[in-house]
Design a protein around this nucleic acid. Sequence first.
DNA 1: AACACCAAGATTGCATACGATTTGCCCAAT
DNA 2: ATTGGGCAAATCGTATGCAATCTTGGTGTT
Lengths: 219, 219
Amino acid sequence: MAIRETLRNAIIDRRLAPGTKLSESEVGSLFDVSRTVARAALQMLAFEGLVKTERNRGAFVSNPSPEEARQIFASRRLIEPGIVAAAVERITPEDIAKFRRQLDEEQRYLNERGPAARRAEIKASGDFHLMLASVAGNVILQRFMDELVARSSLVIALYGRSGVSSCGHSEHTAVLDALEKGDGERAAKLMIHHIDHIEADLDLQLKQGSGLKDALSLA
Amino acid sequence: MAIRETLRNAIIDRRLAPGTKLSESEVGSLFDVSRTVARAALQMLAFEGLVKTERNRGAFVSNPSPEEARQIFASRRLIEPGIVAAAVERITPEDIAKFRRQLDEEQRYLNERGPAARRAEIKASGDFHLMLASVAGNVILQRFMDELVARSSLVIALYGRSGVSSCGHSEHTAVLDALEKGDGERAAKLMIHHIDHIEADLDLQLKQGSGLKDALSLA
DNA sequence: AACACCAAGATTGCATACGATTTGCCCAAT
DNA sequence: ATTGGGCAAATCGTATGCAATCTTGGTGTT
């Protein structure tokens, strides 16, 4: 199952570009394992929308359409305020401290240069939302968020215009501050604005007609 | 993939009781197919939480704990009002007509006797929520609802006390009426109450200690 | 009589083999 | 020159075989 996690991480921090073909044999030999288990991993990833499989053609890193992107963010706008509301009831001082450390790390990557720092920054800013889902204590919503955050990362890779700083660091700290004060109302509002800002930074013109453009972008 | 759907339906309308063992060989020979494809189907079902697989032991129909049940309904309370809000913007008169027919069918099964009618009633009342998700037009939320409704059916099978009438037919019509009038606010409220009623009908005392009770229920 | 241990049976986990489908290329015909 | 057909290579879909692990029944000892 480690192979699935490895591929997942590679996809969400953009080492694998959308459209990249992931053949079973290739994945299998790369991880030194048979096609059977490689196939299982790809099926999992397909199930959570990170790769798309075409019959008798293979698996490809997902190339979400603008419409899909909109639906992903619509889902997040719906779910994350609920996560925040649940989190404010359960968050402990230890959690707060852990969040602070996480935000410090975000900050650190923000100041560094280079693609490795960019990848780490993306990962870290996504992890903030995931940690929030974790303290909310609902494993089902947590899994939904896992999927949504991962797919968001794909979408940002495709349609983001200002690079990586889209997931504003300061907005994360604002949410956490409200959470620490126990103001769930305000935290939820801030979270919605945060998601709005991420989506606003995207360029979601429908430059994909039906499916022939997929071929273009995967080159 | 038809095999997955068949198993799914068998589980959600309770022909397969929670705890039932689903061995790969058995499923394979039953569908006249090899263990490979049977295994794939079981993996899918495991991924959406309908079956639980134990290493070197096999797959079993899920036996959700009361805590899981609570989380399922908490998730629905969070998501379904959003679904309703989106649906009220997009619902067409044709949709309304289709819903009316669906509700008539619910009613019909409600008046019939026998286990087959009970199963059909459960299926139909779940389908109401799924149709709503469908007109909302967000395929991601639709998939989440697919999973939540299926798992709810399992939970009701395990913890429901008043049998099947839990998913009140009249409440469905009330939601639809509000939707038809374009009153999304009211429809969302009604939906939350509806979910509350379903959950209130459950007996969620934690009567499962660790795992020995699993053996009892699968008997 | 109760407990512990061991062996046989069964079932999953994984790898490999074979058949089917698609793709890309080459060549011929218009 | 372009288009159409056909052949070969590659890749997926599925079946089956073998090894590893767990369960279960029996047996011997305390």
